[in-house]
């Protein structure tokens, strides 16, 4: 039997009181070890998702069909790198380092969002990612602006502003395609058909299978359950799809008057688990590309460190 030292009991009481009062835990505050490690895991995964998430969109930068769209897409991918940097810094307040986290990403010990293991096959996918993937991300992330850990909550405020902008751009891209030529309309519909279900999977497993949910909600890291957020997302998307003039690929999707929500079909959780396990269409490609960029950049980082050492400047 473990005896809790009186000092630690007092710290834990103070922590619980802060969380209960909806105040913020800051880096120097005492926190339970499990709270710290949960946050590191979640923030690292979030940061990794921003970095890996650059790839499916960067895939279209050199082929963007107009200079305006090209500029928008470049700016978006740049924002994602910025979000990654921001989140790694926030995670570093918990006593880890960016290098350590990147190493865990490269060796497969930490994950990134399963959505980025799907390929961008046409230009319309750039729009579908903006509308659906960023839309799902925002639905997930807006409540994180009230997360109990201060640095994470503040990072999310900034990130969500940019994400909403991206989402509107994606929607506008799809709207242009949908109202364009027949070929463009078909391209938009095809992209929505391919991205709809993977976007719903972004909210994670159903509540009764979600391993970390209860504890995260008690700690106010999470504010709503996976299924709650997923439902909210579906309710938002259905009228938007109608406004776009596009359909969603779900024959069971129907308004339920009693619930005041849309009912929707069942998600293919086998596919979800396979993608998480590394067997999605692009898992191998995404992580290899990331490792390759890191390895090929090693001599550059070494040069910067050597130069800084010679000239007495702080370097990474």
């Amino acid at each position: 039997m473990t005896t809790i030292a009186p000092e630690e009991a007092a710290q834990e009481a103070a922590f619980d009181a802060t969380v209960a009062a909806d105040e913020r835990i800051e880096p120097r505050d005492w926190m339970p070890e499990a709270y710290r490690s949960t946050l590191v895991r979640q923030m690292a995964q979030h940061a990794h998702s921003e970095i890996i998430g650059m790839q499916p969109e960067a895939n279209w930068i050199t082929r963007a069909p107009s200079l305006r769209r090209k500029a928008i897409l470049m700016a978006k991918v740049q924002d994602e790198a910025g979000h990654g940097l921001y989140l790694y810094s926030a995670a570093e307040t918990l006593g880890t380092s960016r290098d350590e986290l990147l190493d865990k990403l490269h060796s497969g010990r930490q994950k990134y969002s399963s959505i980025f293991n799907y390929p961008t096959l046409t230009w319309a996918d750039v729009g579908a990612i903006g509308w659906l993937v960023d839309g799902a991300a925002i639905t997930n992330q807006v409540p994180l602006c009230r997360c109990s850990y201060g640095p994470y909550a503040r990072a999310m405020v900034r990130i969500c502003k940019e994400e909403s902008f991206h989402q509107r751009q994606g929607y506008e891209l799809l709207l242009t395609l949908s109202r364009g030529t027949d070929a463009q309309h078909a391209m938009a519909q095809d992209a929505v058909d391919r991205w709809w279900w993977p976007s719903l999977m972004m909210f994670g497993p159903p509540d009764d299978e979600s391993a970390h949910s209860a504890q995260s909600m008690a700690w106010k890291i999470k504010r709503h359950s996976n299924d709650e957020l997923r439902q909210r997302f579906v309710d938002i998307c259905v009228p938007q799809a109608e406004a776009l003039g596009l359909t969603l690929p779900d024959p069971d999707l129907v308004w339920n008057e009693d619930r005041g929500h849309y009912d929707f079909g069942s998600i293919d959780w086998t596919e979800f688990r396979e993608v998480l396990k590394g067997n999605g269409p692009c898992n191998e490609q995404r992580i290899n590309r990331r490792r390759q960029a890191h390895e090929e950049g090693a001599w550059v980082r070494e040069a910067a460190a050597a130069h800084a050492a010679k000239h007495g400047k702080a370097g990474r």
Partner: peptide, 24 residues
């Protein structure tokens, strides 16, 4: 723009994209 996602450090992802955007 071809560098996007392939830069040696994250700071350079931002810097190279920034320069590319200015030029565009």
């Amino acid at each position: 723009g071809e560098w996007a996602g392939q830069a040696p450090v994250l700071e350079e992802e931002v810097a190279l994209a920034n320069i590319a955007l200015d030029l565009l």
